[in-house]
Design a protein around this nucleic acid. Structure first.
Ligand SMILES: [Zn+2]
Ligand SMILES: [Zn+2]
Ligand SMILES: [Zn+2]
Ligand SMILES: [Zn+2]
Lengths: 176, 176
DNA sequence: CGCGTTATAGTTATAATATAACGACCTGGC
DNA sequence: GCCAGGTCGTTATATTATAACTATAACGCG
């Protein structure tokens, strides 16, 4: 199933939005954390210990994760914080663009793309109903169309959501 | 059918998705309730008293409304029910397609179109951040595009959400 | 009609998600 | 030092949603 991959290090944005979870090693998470830290640094924001811990929990899975699930996992590791602290960290991570919120599930997931944090390539979210994995694919043309539809209704759009629930390639493949 | 009526009564689907609230009279609500009752009858479902009461509260505003707000308004009118009863009624109304759920606000609003309850003209939702009004405009081509984008990611879509937050014509126009 | 079956609703309790309010602390600049 | 702004702790509460069980209403059928 793999697209013809470059021999060494393919652009993260060109890889499948639903990579094999085997690739989800601790090393991968550490790399993702480093990218997030750089985003915070570039924007003169503080990537505090709590924010990093919360981000690590979110980035440790390809599935979306709820605030209280993050709370529980941090608790198991000895970091006991109040819900409000989790939400404050989540807000900072959302503002920085390193995580996204899945409105239809009240849950969060780590952004694994680099092409829509600065440029204008807005992604749509694909959420698997079976394994919870969330993928992002470019949807700029879709958002453009939505903007036109809104305009035709004399509506001034500010925030647009496109979320799809269904089955990811592995879960749809029958080989579970 | 029966669209061949008085020349001063345009098809509901052709009117603006954001009508003037002056039009939102009790009579209008009653008409909407009758349409909903017909949908239930046509599908051999029961439009029970509770479901009708809940629907009336939802239909009484062009804004989206939360389950507990419905609960409170019914309570003021002497109908005291438990939250679960509201949610059960909402589920039935959603299944029948006479209301929609706004995922990004955890709220509900009455469907005022007739062209996507039976046919394949799926709407996108436009939610005003100032007055709460929600409008629907056809977005079939948008959903088609979303389907293609999902397919290109080898994702099997089942449910698609498209929601836009912004300003409705009246709130954006400054003339309130 | 009486009966079984199913859908609906009542009742109680609780789960899950999210925010308000206030004070402590830390950090950088003056 | 002292202020200003941002972060976090602490406590309490608001908001949204469902579980589990009981009771009743509706309907088809013999
Ligand atoms: Zn992203
Ligand atoms: Zn899956
Ligand atoms: Zn509708
Ligand atoms: Zn408005």
């Amino acid at each position: 199933m793999s697209e013809t991959q470059a021999p060494h290090k393919p652009d993260a944005n060109l890889r499948s939005p639903f990579p094999n979870p085997d690739q989800q090693t601790a090393k991968k998470v550490a790399q993702t954390v480093e990218r997030a830290a750089k985003v915070f640094a570039d924007r003169n924001l503080r990537f505090t210990k709590l924010r990093q811990q919360v981000f690590e929990e979110i980035a440790a899975t390809h599935a979306s994760i709820g605030a209280y699930e993050i709370l529980a996992r941090l608790g198991e590791k000895g970091t006991r914080v109040a819900p409000i602290s989790i939400y404050r960290a989540i807000d900072a991570l959302l503002d920085a663009g390193v995580i996204h919120r899945l409105e239809s599930k009240n849950a969060f997931f780590a952004c694994r793309r680099t092409d829509h944090m600065s440029k204008g390539k807005r992604p749509i979210f694909l959420s698997c109903e079976k394994c919870g994995a969330v993928g992002e694919v470019d949807g700029q043309h879709i958002f453009d169309l939505i903007g036109e539809a809104a305009k035709s209704a004399k509506f001034t759009p500010r925030v647009k959501f496109v979320e799809v629930q269904g089955l990811c390639p592995r879960c749809a493949g029958g080989d579970s």
